[in-house]
Each structure stands twice: as C-alpha cells, then as structure tokens.
C-alpha cells in the first residue's frame, strides 16, 4: 500500500500531497522537508529507491517535477515507478502535454485524477481510458451546474 505521495519542484516547493496514512501535521511537514532535501541532493544517475525509516521511498523526476511515493516493505518498487508513470501519462492526456504550471494552477484537477487512479493507496483502475472518462464526466457535471447556476442567478431560469 502506498503511504503517501508527494509532488515537488526542483526548487523544493511542494506541488501536491496525498496522505493515505494519518500523520500529525507536524510530522507531515517534517517528512516532506526531509524527503525533499534528501531527494534533491541525490544525483540523477542514482537509483530511484531510498530506504527510509520503515518504508521505501520511490521517486522519479519528470521535467521540473519530482514524484515521490512511500510504499511498504513488501511492495514492488518497480511497479510503483509504473504507477507514477501512469499518473504522469494521465495528467499529460488531461492537460495536453502537462507542465508544472498546469499542476500549480489546476492542483484540484490533479488531485481528482489521482483519486480516480488510486484509492486508499492502492490502484483502482488500470485502464487510462476509464480514468479519463470518469474525470470528463465529472467535469461535465460541474459545467452543467455552473451554467445552470449562472442562468438562475441572472433570472433566466
């Protein structure tokens, strides 16, 4: 099971955080700080795995963003890399060649996509198409509501 996932920039700025384990806020910040510094200090040629406390850290850099996951001892590190990659692919499809700014300005969308891929730290859907379909339908639902709300507001409905 994935314990948490962090996205941060090369400057060490946190871009996304998803915690599947309950930690106190202070611990979360401490973990984030520690991992960000450790990972940023690692050289590009090094392997993507870190042994950290009682879990394993799997991270991968995509352009200016680092994707970093903590998994349990029994979990497959290589598969976690695939999950990260799948998430990046989904973001890419959704935003159309995604960049860091997309995730900054639409962080909630990035969360929604992640939530359609993983639940409780385990993968729920292995088809890219299904994930994107679910997100699109929900976006549509929101759009309809927004238009309806606006129309009602100005008295057209």
């Amino acid at each position: 099971m994935m314990l948490f996932m962090l996205l941060f920039s090369r400057q060490g700025k946190l871009r996304l955080q998803k915690w599947y384990m309950a930690y106190p806020d202070k611990t979360k910040k401490k973990i984030t700080r520690e991992l960000v510094t450790t990972i940023l200090a690692r050289k590009p040629k090094m392997c993507s795995f870190l042994e950290w406390k009682d879990c394993k850290i799997v991270y991968k850099r995509y352009a200016s963003l680092y994707f970093c996951c903590a998994i349990e001892q029994n979990d497959n590190e290589l598969l976690t890399l695939e999950i990260i990659h799948r998430y990046v692919e989904l973001l890419d499809k959704y935003f159309g060649s995604v960049c860091e700014l997309d995730i900054i300005f639409n962080f909630e969308k990035a969360y929604f996509i992640l939530d359609e891929l993983l639940i409780g730290g385990e993968i729920q859907e292995t088809s890219k198409k299904n994930v994107l379909k679910a997100i699109a339908s929900q976006d549509l639902l929101q759009e309809d509501e927004a238009v309806e709300g606006t129309l009602r507001d100005i008295g057209l409905l």
């Binding site: 935003f95 159309g96 976006d139 759009e143 238009v147 709300g149 606006t150």
Partner: peptide, 30 residues
C-alpha cells in the same frame, strides 16, 4: 454564480485550445 472553476479559454482561438474541454462553448458563455 459558482465560478470557482475559471479558465482563460476566451483568450485562445478554439483551434489552439489544447485543453480537454467537452463544454467549451458553455464555459465561455458562463
């Protein structure tokens, strides 16, 4: 009147709009 979800689509011509958006026109109207 619940515009938490804003996009600057109006500034882009439709053919350059790379965003996934099934309700492009609706959004502009909104």
């Amino acid at each position: 009147m619940y515009p938490y979800y804003e996009q600057d689509w109006s500034v882009l011509p439709p053919e350059n709009n790379r965003r996934f958006n099934p309700a492009f026109n609706m959004a502009t109207i909104r």
